[in-house]
Design a protein around this nucleic acid. Structure first.
Lengths: 338, 338
DNA sequence: AGAATTGAGTTTAACGCTTAACCCATGACC
DNA sequence: GGTCATGGGTTAAGCGTTAAACTCAATTCT
């Protein structure tokens, strides 16, 4: 393995000079030397050792994306297509700027703390909301930049958040159903967590109902884990209900499952039940009928999240405490006009 | 940040002793001291610094999952649900054994080489096949354990491969269609690559035809990128063909897209066209009709891949050069008996 | 002309951990 | 009673980089 000292020896200079060249501290080195050293580096295929660099500078060029594993339900967090597409986009953007992405599932705060000490990660993405208060206090006491994704926890707004117009999205979806003559609209979502997107989406749903003088009924709210079996079952259940003509689901994964359940029960979408999903993943175009869904873009979201991370890593002070991405409605065939 | 030296000082021993305790080299330390040191470690929340450890021992506890980015088509590799579920499972298993997963997209061999030198990664997963020969020669010259996923490159079989009965899977699917009276069976796949799974699946398809005296027709082979738009388009095209009654697609993503295209054209599945997919991802149960598909399990595959990696990392010599996982057919509603 | 600045480097300690090579009692063995 | 193994440690070098502090000439300022 060729080291910085090897390069220095070959070039007949000190390793500091080589280090300066590598880091573009061009004031300290003459043009001639720069070129010579650069040539030698290229010739020998020298690449700095990240561990050594991390040790010496306590900066590792690693950004971690933390995923919180709910102890009870040990699901595979990459099973949600939107989420994994988002992660792919983050990796791509980070890579282009010379950073590395580490993916880490943590199960509690100690786990997180240990991880942070283990690796001097330069930055942290946190997706979703965590139940434990101590995680956020741990994080906000850190000097490490943290980018939250989809968090509505106001107390910790010293960390930047990349979010979405969840309220508006839900409003849009509900309003669209109402405009199509629906008044008996169910709301399907995964278990709500304080500070999570679902809460906001529920607000949007409620507001749309209210604005159209439709009374809110709590028996039309369905909280379910978004496993395939669970949502399909929910669909078969809904299929029997006379007091429902439309469903707004806060994730396409759920919407599709519910749709499958309804169809399995011999009912039709959109003839018997209308459905609107959320996220507008590719699969919306592959269901039959194609799913109408609130659109958000995983690639753009990932790119923006990574861009902000880069800015923070470069020491830029960002006033903005959150970036809220726009939503729109992708109208397809899963809603019928009553 | 509390270091090993801090612990040593507090315990009144040398850091070597602490190190020995941490690594369970219990022969060298008395029981009393072990307990005392362990206590101090716990009390102070000491966690070893991975960079320092990696530097000193040239082993980093990091396993990288390498993804090859095709220069022309810059897709997001995490958009395929099967693949991302697989990665999620790998991370989970590695984590439970104290390893860390880094995800890295590489664009060529230099990129890979630089990455490997940068980080002394302990192990490497390679998913899919790479075009460049030099990548494999680079890898096989390494001391680093490499686990290939879904590779049929025989020349480099010093690396273990976690694969699937692709031939059998395709045979099963095709045979099932034939048993249901189909003889005009199209084969839809992403662009074939030497050593990739698609080649094997094509063989299985051909063999099934042959065994049932159905002539193979090359005009029924459709190679397409598996973007949503591309496959939907393929579906609308197929919808017009009189010489096709069934389609076997080598990925559910494609099958679903084709199905959407067919339905968009006003034709019905399975009434007008029967379809069988491959992978049996969750979404197969969410299409309408539900998609019949060749089943493989992403979680099990990920777990097994990670398990073999662990064994290799622990220095175990594995005779087996490949693990071939079984397939089965998940029969649902997308095939009609003619 | 002397002081101050600049350019182009070098020296050296430090980052936190591992590990080979020592050290020194104590007890066992013949 | 001297030799050997063994248990329970310690010392110190080294992993590859960074960065603060230093050096030493040449130039600029006043």
């Amino acid at each position: 393995m060729v080291t910085i000292d090897d390069i220095a020896r070959i070039a007949g200079v000190s390793n500091t000079t080589v280090s300066n060249v590598i880091h573009g501290k061009t004031k300290r080195v003459s043009q001639k030397t720069i070129e010579k050293i650069q040539q030698i580096i290229d010739d020998h295929g020298y690449v700095p050792n990240m561990s050594a660099r991390a040790l010496a500078s306590s900066s590792s060029k690693v950004v971690a994306l933390i995923n919180h594993l709910d102890p009870q339900k040990s699901g595979n967090f990459l099973e949600d297509p939107f989420h994994s597409a988002f992660i792919g986009a983050v990796e791509q953007t980070l890579r282009e700027s010379g950073y590395y992405l580490m993916i880490r599932t943590i199960i509690n705060c100690d786990d997180l703390r240990a991880f942070l000490r283990n690796w001097n990660v330069d930055g942290l993405f946190l997706t979703g909301v965590f139940q434990e208060e101590d995680i956020y206090s741990t994080l906000s006491s850190l000097e490490t930049p943290v980018v939250l994704i989809d968090s509505y926890l106001e107390d910790y707004n010293q960390m930047i958040n990349i979010g979405l117009h969840d309220f508006e999205g839900a409003y849009l979806a509900t309003q669209y159903l109402i405009e199509n003559g629906h008044t008996k609209i169910a709301f399907a979502c995964p278990p709500m967590r304080k500070g999570g997107v679902v809460v906001k989406r529920l607000e949007g749903y409620k507001k749309a109902l209210e604005d159209h003088q439709i009374p809110f009924k709590s028996e039309l709210i369905f909280e379910r884990e978004f496993s395939t079996s669970g949502t399909t079952e929910l669909g078969t259940m809904i299929a029997k209900r006379e007091d429902i003509t439309a469903i707004f689901a806060t994730a396409d994964v759920m919407a599709a499952g519910i749709m499958a359940g309804i169809q399995k029960s011999g009912k039709k979408v959109p003839d018997d039940f209308s459905i609107v999903g959320f996220d507008d993943i590719n699969w919306c175009r592959m269901t039959h009928p194609m799913l109408t869904s609130v659109h958000q873009d995983a690639n753009i979201k990932g790119e923006i999240a990574a861009d902000y991370m880069m800015k923070l890593l470069e020491g830029e002070v960002i006033q903005k405490k959150s970036v809220i991405l726009p939503v729109s409605l992708s109208v397809r065939d899963s809603v019928r006009k009553l």
